[in-house]
Design a protein around this nucleic acid. Sequence first.
RNA 1: GGAGAGGUGUCCGAGCGGUCGAAGGAGCGCGCCUGGAAAGCGCGUGUACGGUAACCCCGUACCGAGGGUUCGAAUCCCUCCCUCUCCGCCA
Length: 426
Amino acid sequence: MLDARVLRQETDQVAERLARRGFAFDRERFESLESERKRLQVETEALQARRNAESKKIGQAKAQGEDIQPLIAAVGELGEQLDSTKQRLAEIADELEEFLAGVPNLPDEDVPVGEDESSNREMHAVGEIPSFDFTPRDHVDLGAGLAGMDFEAAAKLTGARFVTLAGPVARLHRALSQFMLDMHTEKHGYTEVQVPFIVHADSLFGTGQLPKFADDLFRLEGETPWYLIPTAEVPVTNLVRDEILDRDTLPVKYVAHTPCFRSEAGSAGRDTRGLIRQHQFEKVELVQIVPAGDSERALEELTGHAETILDALELPYRRLMLCTGDMGFSAAKTYDLEVWLPGQEKYREISSCSNTRDFQARRMHARTRGGDGKPEAVHTLNGSGLAVGRTLVALLENHQCANGDILIPKALRPYMGGLERIEARA
RNA sequence: GGAGAGGUGUCCGAGCGGUCGAAGGAGCGCGCCUGGAAAGCGCGUGUACGGUAACCCCGUACCGAGGGUUCGAAUCCCUCCCUCUCCGCCA
């Protein structure tokens, strides 16, 4: 949510920056809603002030045993007026709220302007793209060869876009999560948190998934509107909702390992092979809550933490700065990390690290005290560190041998009981 | 799931339907006192929105949430949420 005051005072600049990301800000509608809101609010509050004063008189008169009937009659008509302006004010306020809730964040000044991923800017590429003296297989074939990945079984249980893992591959998947958690808690200073995988609508509003992106979510049946989390960003960031955080507790750095559930509505036909795009996947998520003014540095740091994992797993990757048109709703600036997949001969997203500045904090009323002691919105950041399923894919494809064996990178061996390679079925 | 208790400011805790943004205490801040500190004393100490460009200033709202009754609701009524205790069930 943008700062309403800034929006009012610098409407032109805001509209221009929103246009960069392809969002047409309806300034006429905003200004008419806003002026109507102001008119009704002033009117309503004046009426309330009058009513309060009159009612107070009644109280005093009554205390002195005077006749209060004439006074009551005098206030009588105030009530009706108040009811109607109050109601109109509530309607306008709701409309305005809805309008503002649908406006995305402002892109940072250094974010490249563009419509789609073709305008993303590569920042750097790390690691060498492996060359094989055989035709590398993709993870689906490799997984089958290891008897460790079964899409048909999952389809039997549930449907498309699910998978079952088995044996060493299942263990590898677990090892990756553990490794990431340990790295971030022991080396990068994050506090591990375990959170609910089901949240209510307020939490999803706070991080920006609602109201606009309900179609991407799984909603549970039942009287309470509950949703499966699409990312740990939702429950973890919302830990600070409605809080005024002590300055000296910042930065708050959380890491959480959770499943993520996405409906993938609108992705029909895309990435249908393999476990690149699943309805359920696991992710180790990094979240930082920092004072305003510290978030640019924090984004570099957090993205670096995610890259550390790729380095340790000896996976080649590159970092992109997303252009304005490719960024998510809540982001002011986003780095995507893309890992090289020999099976596709392409880089594919494995992490997305965003600075939302005060956009989410404002929606969820997460604050700290500034230098003047007054509450001010914190800044929130999040990033995958990393998506576990896709990391498994990258690991299988990059560390495969001609015979289908998989070499376990050194950093991971302690988590695999010392195992150096997973052997393909004879 | 059954029975009961309760949700008030940073915390504890009071609050006959009217003068309650809310007593009192603790904590915190500033000052006095002191060689310094403690104790003691004095003063101060919520948030949001709006009127304003603006600290002050003024108005409005907020005592779990949402409705209702009333000229007037922290106080009365209804619904919901949450917490605690006991019982039942259960990983």
